[in-house]
Computed example of a mutant assay.
Amino acid sequence: MHTSLQGPAGGRRSTERRALQAFIAVAGLLPVFAGIAGVVAGPGLAGSTPPWPADLDSHFRFLSGVFLVVGLGWWSCIPAIETKGARLRLLALMTAVGGLARLYSVSLVGFPSAGHGLGLAMELVAVPLVVLWQARIARRGWRGNS
């Protein structure tokens, strides 16, 4: 493989790029699988027992479908990650606004389960860091095949 980055600095840049791609691949598992599970299980996924209102079921499954697509959107940033800044920032905004809504819920009803707490940390801490990480890689001008 020929790249425009040669020597140790080019190797570090390529490694950093691949690390970001790997992070997004692994982190994307959460919204993809949670979205699928929510579509299939409905509010039962969150521990509710039927019968629940039809509007709650509809809303929960709709948002689970959106969550699934957001996860797929994150995965779509993996190839040529250095060129996907605009898409990544839009997904990050969507994710962070969801995290802010979750944080509002914490202020109203208390802290959620550990899984939702992990989601909150991803949404409000990891996602902004990913945006900065991607911008760093894009600024460095990585060019190559992968």
Score class of each variant (00 low, 15 high):
69 V>P: 00
60 F>E: 00
40 V>H: 02
91 L>V: 06
101 A>Q: 06
35 G>I: 09
88 L>Y: 00
126 A>C: 04
33 F>N: 10
38 G>A: 11
115 G>V: 09
119 G>I: 13
21 Q>N: 10
38 G>M: 03
36 I>N: 13
80 A>K: 03
10 G>Q: 15
114 A>D: 13
113 S>Y: 06
66 V>I: 06
81 I>N: 00
86 A>G: 04
37 A>S: 13
64 S>R: 04
128 P>T: 07
97 V>K: 01
79 P>G: 09
53 P>R: 10
94 M>K: 05
65 G>A: 13
17 R>W: 03
64 S>P: 06
137 I>M: 14
63 L>A: 12
105 S>A: 10
138 A>D: 04
27 A>F: 01
77 C>N: 02
124 L>H: 11
27 A>K: 01
70 V>S: 12
139 R>C: 09
33 F>W: 12
24 I>D: 02
10 G>M: 12
39 V>W: 02
93 L>R: 08
79 P>Y: 08
19 A>P: 00
125 V>W: 07
135 A>P: 02
115 G>F: 14
81 I>K: 01
83 T>W: 13
92 A>W: 05
21 Q>T: 12
62 F>S: 03
145 N>P: 10
28 G>N: 05
24 I>A: 00
102 R>W: 03
98 G>V: 07
14 S>K: 01
1 M>R: 12
45 L>C: 06
36 I>D: 13
54 A>D: 08
85 G>T: 15
42 G>H: 14
73 G>F: 10
91 L>Y: 13
116 H>Y: 15
32 V>F: 13
114 A>R: 15
39 V>Y: 04
77 C>R: 04
122 M>I: 03
49 T>E: 01
41 A>C: 01
50 P>D: 05
94 M>S: 08
68 L>N: 11
45 L>H: 04
96 A>D: 00
46 A>Q: 04
142 W>K: 03
130 V>G: 03
99 G>C: 11
42 G>A: 14
3 T>Q: 03
23 F>R: 04
104 Y>K: 05
38 G>C: 07
110 G>T: 05
31 P>V: 01
38 G>N: 04
25 A>V: 04
88 L>W: 01
109 V>S: 07
91 L>C: 12
